[in-house]
Design a protein around this nucleic acid. Structure first.
Length: 586
RNA sequence: GCGCCCGUAGCUCAGCUGGAUAGAGCGCCGGACUUCGAAUCCGUAGGUCGCAGGUUCGAAUCCUGCCGGGCGUACCA
């Protein structure tokens, strides 16, 4: 398909050259005008469109005249399709007779690899995402981060990158001490087990408790600070408590990851990395990259990037978030010398990353050029912003559970409980599809509104809708397998596929690799979700209008079955890129 | 104040490396089940693309200004 496009580009170009000669226009100038290839707004107009406006000037002719002239030249050889002038455009109707068979067999032969590109061949790309705090469970905002991080990682892998997913657990600092302090004061001997609460929620409860308590007791903040100092000094009792509570949170969070299909190749812990940056800063200070103030604090001058200045080491010599990130980046590159490092972090930290990248460059690390902040917007609710103070933050596990029960009700009301077999597994899969698809459908950079009810809906542009189409395809293919013997003597006839929807399906299937590439270039899962919706929508129409199994022409049945198999394969491949589980039954 | 991002149909979002009458889903209204899963499909209505200039043969798309919103601008993370 791509090859066909390029052939047509060349054909148009040479037709333009021929007419240039005929009308005495400057051929050299024409050669320098980029030829634009696009898709006509309506399929009836053709498969490819070339607007010729830019050539009007050189030809000193109306672009419509040029289009007519070019079309006439092209139509002298109609073996690849026909050209039709439409005002200032030349539209091409491709001859896809061979394309259907080729695309379908490509897809079915390459299987799970169909769509793979060489965009990031031999590149080691590290992707950092999630990065939770250990004082509370995950909420809806984390879910967007996780979905994007996991999806982008898979998209990069599909573009042949060597991807390493890493998580930096934020397990130290004053906020951690707050939940520790509240537990120490009010927790007694209770444990998640004794209370029957998921362990990260158990810890989160004490973080909330701290905030309540600190409103009444002004000394709370100072006690928390004292605890932080004790922790940093290695106090055994505080350390033991810290370990116990961190393990609770982390194991709880891990469970959420498992449920939501998120995984990592390596965990980094801030408690281990937070001191890493200091030596680098001091080295930078010696080299004259930074400067120090009289009070001993160390600063970076950011005027080169039109920013002010930034403190890197406090006057007491301790390090900051930025300092730590500098150290962590360097340590990671030593661990695993990546070509690129992608940070999936909310847009509120844009300033931070601008500064971080600049400083790493100033320190002379070549790889700093390839650091990228994949910034995503906030997740809001239909009722407005999530506010922890007002308790409107949507907990990840609760949300997932809510989606699951809606999925269950739906399956129950359709009387399909016995059909799906493992109900638990199915509702998990549907909830996950709803969640991931809804979160990834919006371009990462933008703020979005998450409406749980909309996300789990089985019709419309949703994850469950996509799954439903996949299930219908699977169902059809099962039926075919049952009556396969009837076709033993028959072979598929692809030339019998003449429906408009079949042509369109083939064009879409063949564009999947280009979609994977674009998603990889833009680092945008939304490119994939958009494509998948187009494909399922088109399949629905085809399914509705065209009989596949119930057709008297057996060789056409076989050809359609091959086409349907290819559609299922591309759906599977696409689904796995955006965290939508493929279901054979639902 | 300054910096970055956003403003497209009632709502949620595409389209933004400039190109043919601005698209989809939801919702509304109206059609289609003796046939491969109607959890579906088809159709109608609905938009001064925030406003005003500019560049261009051509602007939702690029530039400038303004209005509205978000996020930053800590010796917090």
């Amino acid at each position: 398909m791509e090859a066909l496009k390029n052939i047509w580009k060349d054909r148009i170009k040479s037709a333009l050259m021929d007419s240039a000669e005929k009308y005495g226009a400057d051929a050299g100038a024409i050669d320098h005008i980029p030829l634009i290839l696009e898709t006509p707004p309506k399929v009836e107009l053709g498969d490819l469109a070339f607007p010729l406006f830019p050539f009007a000037r050189v030809f000193k002719m109306n672009p419509a005249q040029i289009a007519a002239e070019v079309a006439e030249i092209l139509n002298k050889d109609a073996s690849l399709g026909s050209a039709e002038p439409a005002g200032p455009y030349v539209n091409i109707k491709l001859d896809l007779s061979g394309q259907i068979e080729k695309t379908v067999s490509d897809v079915n032969r390459e299987g799970n690899d169909y769509g793979r590109t060489l965009l990031y061949k031999d590149e080691k790309i590290m992707v950092e995402f999630s990065c939770p705090n250990t004082n509370k469970p995950l909420h809806l905002g984390h879910l967007r981060n996780d979905s994007i991080g996991e999806s982008v990682s898979r998209i990069l892998s599909m573009n042949s990158a060597d991807v390493r997913k890493v998580n930096l657990i934020n397990d130290r600092g004053i906020h951690i001490c707050k939940s520790m302090l509240a537990y120490k004061k009010f927790g007694g001997e209770t444990t998640p087990e004794s209370e029957g609460i998921k362990s990260d929620h158990f810890v989160g409860k004490y973080y909330v408790k701290y905030n309540e308590w600190s409103k009444e007791y002004p000394g709370a903040e100072e006690e928390a600070r004292a605890m932080l100092r004790a922790w940093e000094a290695g106090d055994p009792e505080v350390t033991a408590l810290w370990e116990k509570m961190n393990n609770w949170t982390i194991s709880g969070v891990q469970e959420t990851y498992r449920k939501t299909g998120i995984s990592f190749d390596k965990f980094y812990f801030e408690s281990e990395t937070y001191k890493l940056g200091k030596a680098e800063i001091l080295r930078g200070l010696e080299k004259g990259v930074f400067y120090s103030e009289k009070d001993g604090s160390v600063w970076a001058d950011l005027s080169e990037i039109n920013l002010d200045k930034k403190v890197l080491l406090r006057s007491d010599g301790t390090s900051l978030y930025l300092t730590q990130d500098i150290g962590t980046a360097i340590a990671r590159h030593k661990d695993w010398p990546f070509e690129r490092l992608i940070y999936v972090v909310g847009s509120e930290q844009q300033y931070h990353f601008k500064v971080l990248f600049f400083i790493l460059k100033k320190l002379g690390f070549k790889w700093a050029e390839k650091l990228y902040h994949l910034s995503y917007g906030m997740v809001n609710l239909p009722e407005g912003k999530m506010k922890s103070r007002e308790g409107t933050v949507v907990d990840a596990d609760d949300l997932f559970q809510e989606l699951k029960s809606i999925a269950f009700e739906e399956i129950e009301s359709k009387d399909r409980i016995s059909e799906v077999g493992d109900v638990e597994k199915t509702t998990d899969a549907v909830a996950l599809a709803a969640l991931n698809y809804y979160l990834l459908q919006v371009s990462p950079g933008k703020d979005m509104i998450f409406n749980p009810k909309d996300s789990i809906s089985f019709n419309g542009n949703t994850g469950p809708y996509l799954q439903y189409m996949g299930a219908r395809i699977s169902s059809m293919l099962r039926k075919f397998e049952e009556r396969k013997e009837q076709f033993a003597e028959t072979s598929p006839d692809f030339s019998s596929l003449r429906e408009k929807s079949e042509r369109e399906l083939v064009k879409l299937l063949s564009s999947f690799p280009a979609v994977v590439r674009e998603a990889g270039e833009e680092m945008s899962p939304a490119v994939v979700t958009g494509y998948l919706y187009d494909l399922t929508k088109l399949f629905s129409r085809f399914y509705h209008d065209v009989p596949v199994l119930n057709d008297e022409n057996k060789s056409r049945v076989l050809a359609r079955i091959e086409l349907v198999k290819a559609i299922r394969q591309v759906l599977k491949n696409g689904f796995s890129l955006v965290g939508v589980p493929f279901l054979d039954r639902m």
